[in-house]
Design a protein around this nucleic acid. Structure first.
Length: 725
RNA sequence: GGGCGCAUAGCUCAGCUGGUUAGAGCGUUGCAUUCACAUUGCAAAGGUCCCUGGUUCGAAUCCAGGUGCGCCCACCA
């Protein structure tokens, strides 16, 4: 082989695309093909992972790149160890996020709202948007080298997943776990929809705490930051042991507050904190979660005074139809006028806002669908909370890093019923049909006059089914049988609650098993200064650009080396460049052997060759050591150690020490051939060890050393090196 | 208010169940180099392992307290 065929430096840009195409055309991403071709034994144990589906809202970022890298390392390792390995890819419809992006775009370009377009037209537009992003995303996944099975690709909103959603919904409804109820929900007036507790972002703001009485005759002053809601008060709550107010408990008063007649009952409730404000709470059941609960305990009526557009619905012309902020001023002015205002204090307040739209959340009573997490499941002797807690508590599900288990339990302990209905159009429509007083659940009923619930389901409802809906459930498919429960769920710690917990819930409920036995949580990828990457800061590093410039292998290594699970990491171009150099180092190790040997393929030993010099013995011993260490670390998911060990060995043992020693040994005719055998043995083993981390360059070099062209000779399906005892 | 985590070389971080002179990458400094690679090699400098106390033959590692950061949760009216 001459110089032009083996250039001095590795050029990832020209090699990677062709290598991925070879992998894909081999069909070995699909475990069925592996079995058919004989690279995997049909009775081999399985190793399966379902890819956390990226949102079709955007394109891939560094967080996705980290996810794909970690998962691909696990998958390639498993495949090379001879396991029946499945990595199933997919994308997520991300209901609220996607609809919000498309609506915003239409508003900007055409000045139209969703109501101008209508439900069908909006959905058509969203589908077009989603189709485009899906294609971009799948290309990007390939750029990163992900060896996932595209034959089994899934989408959270396709027909198969829809059927799974309807089936679970129906079953839960029949079990009384899904119910419709009038409850206080987090209403986002900007997005015109309900959102879950987890989609709320609290913002620290300064506010004024007003202390006043409803009227001159009312005996108890109250404090609030939201005087405008007081027109909806039906009670005042005081602590039952509070001496100051005990005498008033049970008394009822009629007052006129800012032109609105109120009927106030004084109740004793432990929720009232005697040390806060005046120790008495004005209870507004319709516009506060806490107050709603107080009202439930004392059978108090709820009176809605704010509508879906955050405007007042009661009072005279000075109040009615006003936005809440304006109404507040009106009420405060009235209080001053009436000399009812006793105190004004500046306080810090955390305001609930919607994660997606930034709108200030207005708690409202609404008819919504809920999942009851505290009800005993018929015939199971357990609640959904129990189902979430038990497998983690008893160790059937292992969370890495371990300490997230504590956070997980803490979250479950504080969990309330899950509101699953959303007032948006994009998503799984709630599978409930109404006709007068009749109700049908699950599938559309025959006959005329039925109308389907207009709401859609929370995205996480369908995501929660992901490990089994992707494998064909509710049918008892061969895939479901073979690959479920999956081996590992690898995802970011920020969605432990959103997603991981709910997968455990749904799988435990629907299949009476666990969705996965290991949860591997990765941290957030930050920039070199430790800031989160964001569009507004403009500090994002695009993984696709990086892959083009330095190679996907370099990006993968940079993301994994020194990055422990559950911990945020920093990435910079400097770090990525360092691993581009590593790929080049591997390249030149092989290049060196090529310049000294023109029949590498024929000389590759079948088993460990004999050592004749101290240098030989030393490198073979080191090779065994690193093989054992890397294998052990990959088995335990300690990727940051394993990747570093490969790097260290290839560069500082093989290249720096043995290659140098081999230069003199190659001059000795008595040693030359054996030295080449050892070199080839060590090199081929090293390529195998490095392959999960840097799949492209190792595959390329493997081809150059073995000169083999049969798909079965691809490095990706070679057996993992074994250390003989 | 409740919970979780972090503090180790100039920078970014490893360091498992406590055990020789505490490690890596990047950076810095010096030397080398027509020899696989300058995307190189060799070498060097650089650390009270945040503080205090405890357990121990022995602590970066375990325990308690403190200080400083960060994150998550929450019904602060």
């Amino acid at each position: 082989m001459n110089q032009s065929e083996f250039p001095k430096n590795y050029d990832p840009a020209s090699a990677e695309k062709a290598i991925y195409a070879r992998w894909e055309s081999s069909g070995f991403f699909d475990p069925d093909t592996c079995i058919a071709a004989g690279v995997t034994k049909p009775d081999a144990p399985t190793f399966s992972m379902i890819m956390p589906p990226p949102n079709v809202t955007g394109v891939l970022h560094m967080g996705h790149a980290l996810m794909l890298t970690v998962e691909d390392i696990m998958i390639r390792f498993a495949r090379m160890r001879g396991l029946r390995t499945l990595w199933l890819p997919g994308t997520d419809h991300a209901a609220i996020a996607t609809q919000a992006v498309v609506e915003k775009d239409i508003a900007k370009k055409e000045g139209k709202s969703r109501h101008d377009l209508g439900r069908e037209e909006l959905l058509r537009r969203i589908d077009a948007f989603v189709g485009h992003h899906h294609d971009v995303i799948t290309e990007q996944i390939k750029v990163m080298g992900a060896s996932c099975d595209w034959n089994r690709e899934a989408f959270t909103l396709d027909d198969a997943r829809s059927r799974a959603v309807r089936t679970v919904f129906k079953r839960m409804y029949d079990d009384g776990l899904i119910y419709r109820g009038n409850r206080i929900v987090n209403w986002d007036p900007k997005g015109q929809t309900t959102i879950s507790d987890d989609e709320i972002v609290y913002e620290e703001r300064s506010a004024t705490l007003y202390t006043f009485k409803y009227s001159k005759d009312f005996p108890i002053p109250i404090s609030t930051t939201r005087p405008e809601t007081k027109v909806g008060d039906t009670a005042v709550a005081v602590h039952p042991d509070d001496e100051r107010y005990r005498a008033y408990i049970g008394k009822e008063y009629d007052v006129e507050f800012c032109g609105v007649p109120l009927h106030i009952t004084v109740v004793g409730d432990p929720a009232a904190d005697p040390t806060f404000g005046t120790g008495a709470v004005g209870v507004t059941p319709a516009h506060s979660m806490t107050d709603w609960e107080i009202a439930q305990r004392h059978n108090l009526p709820a009176r809605q005074v704010i509508n879906e557009y955050a405007r007042m619905t009661v009072g005279g012309p000075e109040l009615k139809d006003k936005k809440v902020a304006e109404a507040r001023e009106v009420v405060v002015a009235w209080l001053r006028e009436q000399s009812l205002l006793e105190k004004e204090e500046a306080v810090a307040q955390s305001v609930a806002t919607a994660e997606r739209t930034g709108g200030i959340i207005e708690p409202l009573p609404k008819l919504q669908w809920f999942v009851n997490v505290n009800k005993e499941i018929p015939g199971r002797g357990a609640t959904l909370k129990d189902i979430m807690r038990t497998p983690v508590a008893d160790g059937r599900i292992r969370i890495i890093p371990e300490h997230f288990g504590k956070t997980y339990f803490h979250w479950i302990d504080n969990l309330r019923d899950w509101c699953i209905s959303r007032q948006i159009w994009y998503g799984h429509r709630i599978p409930v049909w109404y006709r007068g007083d009749e109700i049908a659940v699950g599938e559309a009923p025959a006959g005329d006059g039925w109308e389907q619930d207009s709401d859609t389901l929370d995205t996480w409802f369908s995501s929660a089914l992901w490990t089994f809906s992707t494998l064909g459930w509710p049918d008892a498919t061969a895939d479901l049988q073979a690959y479920h429960p999956t081996a590992v769920l690898e995802t970011g710690y920020e969605i432990l609650f959103f997603w991981v917990a709910r997968m455990i819930l749904m799988t435990g409920y629907a299949l009476d098993t666990i969705p996965f036995s290991t949860v591997y949580l990765h941290g957030t990828v930050r920039d070199a200064q430790g800031r989160k990457m964001s569009k507004s800061l403009g500090n994002g590093i695009d993984p696709i650009e990086v892959a083009a410039k330095y190679g996907a292998d370099a990006a993968r290594m940079a993301l994994v080396v020194g990055n422990t699970p559950g911990t945020d990491s920093r990435i910079s171009e400097d770090k990525i460049r360092a691993y581009k150099y590593f790929a080049n180092k591997l390249w030149n190790i092989i290049r060196f052997v090529h310049t000294n040997c023109d029949n590498t393929a024929a000389l590759i030993p079948k088993s460990a060759p004999e050592a004749r010099t101290d240098a030989d013995r030393d490198i073979l011993a080191k090779l065994s050591e690193v093989t054992t260490a890397v294998t052990g670390n990959l088995d335990r998911f300690v990727l940051h150690e394993a990747s570093q060990q490969v790097y260290q060995f290839a560069w500082h043992e093989l290249a720096d020490v043995y290659l140098e020693a081999s230069k003199t040994q190659l001059q000795d005719p008595a040693l030359k051939e054996n030295t080449l055998r050892i070199l080839l043995w060590v090199i081929t083993t090293t390529l195998k060890l490095a392959h999960p981390f840097a799949p492209f360059v190792t595959e390329e070099l493997w081809g150059r050393v073995t000169e083999a062209t049969d798909p079965k000779d691809l490095l990706m399906v070679q057996p993992w090196p074994v250390v003989l005892p």
